[in-house]
Nucleic acid binder design. Structure first.
Length: 154
DNA sequence: GCCAACGTTGGC
DNA sequence: GCCAACGTTGGC
């Protein structure tokens, strides 16, 4: 059996929180609006069943709040063609869509949210992309060890 | 609100 | 292909 991938995805809770995900139809949503090539490429490499840490960015404090899973692999993000959408991309052609999204489903909320300060105290998490200075990637990989360690805290 | 870090754009 | 200017992210 192949090992599943582990990821972290950021969302501003004022825009879309883990509670919003839990309340969504089938507790599922499509992760649209990603307009960064690196983040897009990570989404393209996701497989159904991959595990996702749900992160609340620009929150006070910013925290890892729970877990989701990938339920649909990357496909064209329709908001790139919607002139009224904030993430409209006039350069992208329907014949050759530039931006993709995946579908994720709610799995669980942690008993408590994990702050960056707390995570930084764990030497095992020292290499985490999330904790790197200036790291802005909204979709990023997590190692299996990092995943195990974080989920063991809650 | 500030600003460091980073990605993108476009002139050359 | 270089790099300055600009825009965005996101912690603080």
């Amino acid at each position: 059996m192949a090992t599943k991938g582990y990821w972290l995805m950021k969302s501003e809770p004022s825009t879309f929180s883990i509670d919003d995900l839990q309340r969504s139809p089938n507790q599922t949503t499509s992760w649209d609006g990603v307009r960064n090539y690196q983040a897009r490429n990570f989404m393209r490499s996701m497989a159904v069943g991959d595990h996702v840490l749900f992160y609340h960015s620009s929150a006070d404090p910013p925290t890892v709040v729970g877990i989701a899973e990938i339920v649909k692999t990357a496909y064209s993000d329709p908001t790139q063609f919607d002139k009224k959408d904030k993430h409209y991309d006039p350069e992208s052609k329907p014949s050759e869509p530039r931006w993709d999204m995946v579908d994720i489903r709610y799995v669980r909320k942690f008993a408590r949210a994990l702050t960056l300060d707390e995570l930084r105290k764990h030497s095992k998490l020292k290499g985490m992309v999330l904790l790197r200075k200036g790291s802005r990637l909204s979709v990023q990989p997590v190692t299996q060890l990092e995943w195990k360690h974080i989920t063991s805290l809650v």
